[in-house]
Design a binder for these strands. Structure first.
Lengths: 145, 145
DNA sequence: TATTGTTATACTCTATAACTATA
DNA sequence: TATAGTTATAGAGTATAACAATA
């Protein structure tokens, strides 16, 4: 534990532990999804399209904190997997409305199950209550940061 | 909150929130240390050398989870900043013992204060108790993962 | 002027392979 | 054989600048 007045040790810095935990969990995600062509961020993008059918890439970027330039490859990957389809917007010809395909809905359900299994493994040292507390605290850190 | 039996929403995944929180905190660290030539990982390396004077680069890699190849540039940077010095090991001519210079001790004290200030800002939405809980949970996630 | 989707590009972080000197 | 330090290299993730089409 950290004592008053003393300089903080490295292992007591939240940022250090955040980075190491994030790297471990990302690595476990990569193991679980190896060979599937799905990355953490493309999984996130598919989730947003599922939760907000007809959304646009610009809107997804705002929700997920991505740069518009970086979502292009992610959408191309999901497109190549047959997960999503793009429909030109009639009212705003700059935009494409994004939807899951029938196959995409099946795939995403499987991916969600894989992600849930991965999290069970990665967070096995935390109780359910602790996991909920953790998510709540992390959310407060990055939201409106 | 997550209800039983329902598929988890993206925002309820710990991994997603971990990654976003880590990115926000890393970004705030980068802002705080902009122009200093200090990166999160080189700060970590300097901390380990301070806490374990005479340690080697291989040992630091084991402690911090770095690849041996990746610490070379970090040590070169700390060397160029005048923060550390390397002493050839008499008993094992493969190894270099690492120490902070006098200037390095002064610099690191300042960096620790900057990092503490950065964390206060990044974690301002969490109470002191919550911050301690967060660090404890993150540590359990990445240790022995 | 501002926004959408896009290309090109660059920088950081992390990973692997291979080399040498030494143990 | 194994380890320490190192080089080269490659892959992700993320960032900025700029463009054409459209609003």
């Amino acid at each position: 534990m950290q004592k008053n007045g003393e300089p903080k040790r490295l292992e007591d810095f939240a940022g250090y532990n955040l980075r190491r935990a994030s790297n471990v969990v990302l690595s476990d995600f990569a193991d679980m999804f190896a060979g599937s062509g799905v990355r953490p961020t493309s999984f996130s993008v598919a989730c947003v399209i599922d939760e907000q059918p007809g959304t646009t890439s610009a809107e997804i970027c705002r929700i997920l904190g991505l740069q518009r330039a970086n979502i292009v490859a992610l959408l191309a990957e999901l497109d190549a997997l047959g997960t999503i389809r793009r429909v030109d917007d009639e009212n705003d010809k700059r935009s494409q409305r994004l939807y899951l395909t029938d196959r995409g809905e099946v795939d995403l359900a499987a991916w969600r199950a894989m992600a849930a299994s991965h999290e069970t493994r990665a967070l096995s040292r935390l109780s359910d209550d602790e996991q909920a507390q953790l998510v709540d605290m992390l959310r407060r850190i990055w939201r409106d940061a």
